[in-house]
């Protein structure tokens, strides 16, 4: 067992597996506790000093971030 940050989305619990910054935006890689294949990549935005996680804008953004997260996970394995 390890302590991880939990985000509830659509009544499902995801934990923050990884975070990275790309072009000055912070992105999080969320994984469902019950199904490791179920993941979400979201980006962090601030509104009135409150932090929110929002969807990615488009497929291109997803492709870039997915590749970056995968690369980081592989490098962490080394």
């Amino acid at each position: 067992m390890v302590e991880k940050e939990i985000i509830v989305i659509d009544d499902k619990e995801y934990f923050v597996l990884n975070e990275l910054t790309y072009e000055k935006t912070n992105y999080v890689y969320l994984v469902s506790e019950k199904d490791l294949k179920d993941f979400l990549i979201m980006k962090s935005v601030f509104e009135r000093e409150e932090e929110y996680l929002v969807n990615l804008d488009n497929e291109e953004e997803f492709d870039i971030l997915f590749t970056l997260f995968q690369k980081e996970l592989k490098e962490n394995k080394k």
Binding site: M1, E3, E5, V8, M42, E50, E51, V54, N55, E61
Partner: peptide
């Protein structure tokens, strides 16, 4: 990317 989501980040910590 399909469903628009906006989740307030609460930094809840849990043992997983």
């Amino acid at each position: 990317i399909s469903k628009p989501k906006k989740i307030k980040r609460k930094r809840t910590i849990k043992c997983v």
